[in-house]
């Protein structure tokens, strides 16, 4: 992809290209992208901006890229923030990456474009997200066999739980600790609510209200990453999924122990 008549790049140019490539890759990673997509994005940006792509190291908490041309070679690294899932941001970054292959853009223009989408990509309001997540958990409850009497308590508990999780993660709390606290609160509220409503499925309601904490996308991405030849990233994702689930289960267990309910 490197054009032979493209101007020679000095180390400073390569540094700028490396950083903007890493920025695009990091945004996709933080939005829940698979390792293969992250690698391809970084490569597309780097090659589209005229550098020779030598390699990308994808770690769970950092990314490093090596670029070069005939005369120079550089390596740059960035730290990756909290992994989440943000579909619209992921898609917006991919569109920018696509544009680089068809339009002549400079690293500065790509940086401005990435800044713009980071600020302007729409998000659903947190309360709406919380209510939708509550409804999803109540739906999960019905799939698990929870009776109708426990439906509203699960809905309420999960809505409050998602709102609390959003708040705690916004305060930079450790995701595992946040998962334990949210699971404890959800299990407590849903079990008490289901008991008051006269439900026969209090134990299932406790678990259903905490299903918002199950990291489903990272769990499937872990397997796909390993299949795609990124076993380190896949294993790290699988371990992080397991850790979140252990902490969440500890929260459910504690709520059950306090209330004398066996989940």
């Amino acid at each position: 992809m490197n054009e032979s008549n493209s101007p020679r790049l000095d180390r400073q140019d390569l540094g700028k290209i490396a950083l903007v490539s890493l920025r695009a890759a990091r945004m996709i990673m933080e939005s829940g992208g698979r390792a293969q997509v992250i690698a391809k994005s970084a490569q597309t940006v780097a090659c589209g901006l005229g550098a020779e792509f030598l390699g990308l190291r994808i770690g769970y908490a950092s990314l490093a890229i090596s670029l070069g041309d005939d005369a120079n070679m550089i390596t740059r690294m960035v730290v990756v923030g909290r992994h989440g899932v943000n579909h619209r941001l992921d898609q917006a970054v991919r569109r920018v990456v696509q544009r680089i292959t068809t339009e002549r853009m400079t690293p500065g223009e790509v940086e401005v474009e990435l800044d713009r989408i980071a600020q302007t990509t729409p998000k659903h309001p947190p309360l709406f997200v919380a209510a939708a997540t509550g409804l999803a958990c109540a739906g999960f409850g019905r799939l698990l066999g929870v009776d109708w009497l426990a439906f509203v308590p699960i809905l309420l508990a999960s809505t409050l739980g998602q709102h609390a999780r959003h708040y705690l993660l916004g305060k930079q709390m450790n995701p595992c600790v946040a998962a334990a606290m949210v699971a404890f609160g959800c299990a407590l509220i849903s079990s008490q609510g289901a008991k008051l409503a006269g439900s026969d499925t209090v134990n299932l309601a406790m678990i259903a209200s905490c299903l918002l904490l199950v990291p489903g996308v990272p769990a499937t991405n872990a397997q796909t990453d390993i299949m795609d030849g990124h076993p380190t990233m896949g294993s790290a994702r699988a371990v992080s999924v397991l850790m979140i689930m252990i902490f969440a289960t500890a929260g459910i267990w504690l709520a059950g122990a306090i209330l004398g309910v066996h989940p």
Partner: peptide
């Protein structure tokens, strides 16, 4: 019943994942 609540759960998580 299962299909409907499967759809509800997927759409709810779609909002959490910031789908349009």
């Amino acid at each position: 019943h299962q299909a409907f609540f499967g759809g509800v759960a997927a759409a709810g998580f779609g909002i959490l994942f910031n789908f349009g």
